[in-house]
């Protein structure tokens, strides 16, 4: 138990340092870390502090967010196939971002894109809440989320379809693949408050998620407020996933695979899976972002492509294992 915590935090720390020292600028490990802490008033400190540090920090924040939200979503829905994107937040954030690129809002001022993506996430959450209601079974939430995701996806395709500007269309396609390249500390500051707020909200669900193992009726009779836990899940997920999508685009599979992968190591307890998945998600995204830079440094390989390429086979393997166990 504590061994797992130690292992995961060591892994995250090691990958974080690795993420800081890997990059196109050819700087030695010692030199680059020194430049990070001691200002040499030259390009090395600039690269470390303005390019690599925000990138590594965002990988930790976003990976952690996706892992945490995925574990919370799976716990609430009692379904190992649930994903934080299920409630339509990432879809609607992506649509708003695409609109911002298409209309030129993204180009006209620096935070046009993340801010409109956040607004999109907010609208998506509002629609899901109106559709699913604050009460009711988890099924209505899934259905509302799927409906909003499908609608947002359809509008995104429509924007691409009718886009008169091939450059904008190109930019949209690349943005939707998800990436941490060319991010600054300002992006970190835009995302950080929402991610911290959302993560704190999701962390309060721990006991309720454990109780939900016995079903909604039993949990409610034990004093778990189903209405509160549902709203906490929706707003918490919206905050962390909305902020993540706003900054980095749509990054799939982390929220789905990481909780699934770590579940056996926490005795399948949904409460313990929350923090374990946050660490696991951070580790996975750091590793993927290192891979992006190490494998094809010249070709700007997109992060979302790598997580999907790694995540999908991993998921297939897990399904195979589950089937073999006869569950």
């Amino acid at each position: 138990m504590t061994r797992l915590a130690l292992l995961l935090s060591t892994l995250v720390l090691a990958l974080f340092i690795a993420a800081l020292v890997v990059g196109p600028a050819d700087i030695g490990i010692y030199q680059s870390l020194k430049a990070l802490f001691v200002d040499d008033e030259g390009p090395m400190t600039l690269v470390m502090r303005e390019v690599r540090l925000p990138r590594a920090l965002l990988a930790v924040m976003i990976g952690g967010s996706l892992g945490l939200a995925g574990a919370a979503m799976q716990g609430y829905l009692r379904n190992p196939l649930a994903d934080p994107g299920l409630i339509g937040v990432s879809g609607s954030a992506a649509l708003a971002a695409v609109l911002a690129i298409q209309t030129g809002l993204a180009a006209s001022f620096a935070f046009g894109l993340p801010l409109s993506a956040l607004a999109g996430a907010l609208i998506g959450v509002f629609l899901v809440l109106v559709l699913a209601g604050p009460r009711g079974s988890s099924l209505t939430l899934i259905l509302a989320g799927i409906a909003i995701s499908a609608l947002a996806g359809a509008f995104t395709s429509l924007v691409l379809n009718l886009s008169p500007n091939p450059f904008a269309a190109n930019e949209i396609v690349f943005w939707m693949m998800g990436s941490l390249a060319d991010k600054s500390m300002t992006h970190v500051w835009v995302a950080l408050p929402l991610i911290v707020l959302g993560a704190l909200m999701l962390a309060t669900m721990a006991r309720g998620l454990d109780a939900l193992t016995l079903g909604e009726d039993a949990a409610e009779a034990m004093g778990i407020g189903l209405r509160r836990i549902r709203l906490t899940l929706i707003f918490g997920t919206a905050a962390v996933v909305g902020a993540s999508t706003a900054v980095a685009g749509a990054i799939g599979f982390v929220g789905l695979v990481v909780p699934h992968l770590l579940r056996p190591f926490v005795g399948a307890r949904p409460s313990r899976l929350l923090w374990a998945s946050a660490f696991g998600g951070a580790a996975m995204l750091l590793a993927a972002d290192i891979a992006v830079r190490a494998i094809l440094p010249a070709r700007d390989l997109k992060l979302g492509v790598v997580t999907a390429l790694v995540g999908a086979p991993l998921f297939l393997h897990l399904i195979y294992l589950t089937r073999r166990e006869g569950l």
């Binding site: 009692r78 454990d210 109780a211 193992t213 016995l214 039993a218 009779a221």
Partner: peptide, 26 residues
């Protein structure tokens, strides 16, 4: 009051002791 519903739901592969401990939630 403790309530045992008719549908016998156990969502995750937790061990028996952990499951019984859930009864202490309140």
């Amino acid at each position: 009051v403790a309530w045992m519903p008719q549908s016998r739901e156990i969502a995750w592969p937790v061990d028996v002791e952990t499951l019984v401990m859930l009864g202490r939630t309140p």
